[in-house]
Simulated assay, not measured.
Amino acid sequence: MADAPLRADAKDNRARLIAAARRAVTRSGDLRLNAIAKEAGVGQGTLYRHFPNRESLLLEVYRADVDELCALAPALLRDHLPVEALRLWFDRLADYANVKHGVFNVIEAASRSDLIAGSHGPIDEAIEVLLAAGRADGSLRADVDARDVVLLVGYLTRLDDAEREARAGHLLAVVLDGLRAR
């Protein structure tokens, strides 16, 4: 039997909980559920109705970020040339990596492989949409595929908090320069 659709207020509560958890995990990696509920403006009972434990909340934060990141690729291509779209997507990728880093700091190691397996396909597809547009207009190299880009930007999750702001944008610019057609 399928779950009943959520009422509008329940959807709003769920979205606010996910947003509050996302902010918390990027701030410190220390995720206190009572603080999340308070920041979201709901009671603990509401939080636990939507997310029975911390891991389920974090998994949803991660899934929401993956969905947003993947939906952004074709949206950017509607308004920007491929290289600019890829640069803007890289900016969002840096935010995503920060969330991923925070989530991984909190989630059990056993859950990590499931989480990674569920996101790589959609992210690879989003990257390929951007690369294909750049290959088609001649602005991006023809010899690079989505896996190459994933491997190149994998460092984002390994930047520590002290260097993330200073290095992420610069390193993504270096990667983007390397992807440009010569």
Rank of each mutant, 00 (worst) to 15 (best):
V99K: 02
A166T: 15
D12L: 14
E165V: 07
D9K: 13
G121T: 12
C70W: 01
A94L: 07
R135H: 02
I18C: 03
V149G: 00
N98I: 14
Y155Q: 11
S56P: 04
R182E: 10
E39S: 13
A10D: 00
R167L: 15
R141Y: 01
G118V: 08
V144N: 02
G43A: 12
A142F: 00
F51R: 04
G169M: 00
I18H: 03
T26D: 05
V175T: 09
E39V: 06
R7V: 10
A19I: 11
H80N: 00
G118H: 03
L159R: 02
F90D: 01
V175P: 00
A21Y: 02
W89F: 03
G118K: 03
V129D: 11
R32P: 00
A132P: 00
H170N: 14
R16E: 05
R167W: 11
A110E: 14
R7S: 15
A71I: 11
E128Y: 04
Y155R: 11
L171W: 04
W89P: 00
L159W: 07
Y62I: 13
V61E: 05
H170P: 08
L57I: 14
A4T: 06
I18F: 06
R158L: 13
D95V: 14
F104D: 04
T26R: 12
A15L: 04
G121F: 00
D148R: 03
T26K: 10
D124T: 07
L171Y: 01
E108S: 15
L72N: 02
A162I: 09
D148S: 09
A15M: 09
D148K: 04
D79I: 13
T46E: 06
R16I: 09
P52G: 12
V174T: 15
I18P: 05
G154F: 00
H120S: 13
V175C: 07
R23V: 15
T26H: 04
R14I: 13
R27I: 13
K100D: 10
D148F: 05
H101K: 14
H80Q: 01
P74G: 11
L33Q: 07
H170F: 12
D143N: 08
R135N: 01
G138V: 01
R180F: 08
A117Y: 05
D177F: 05
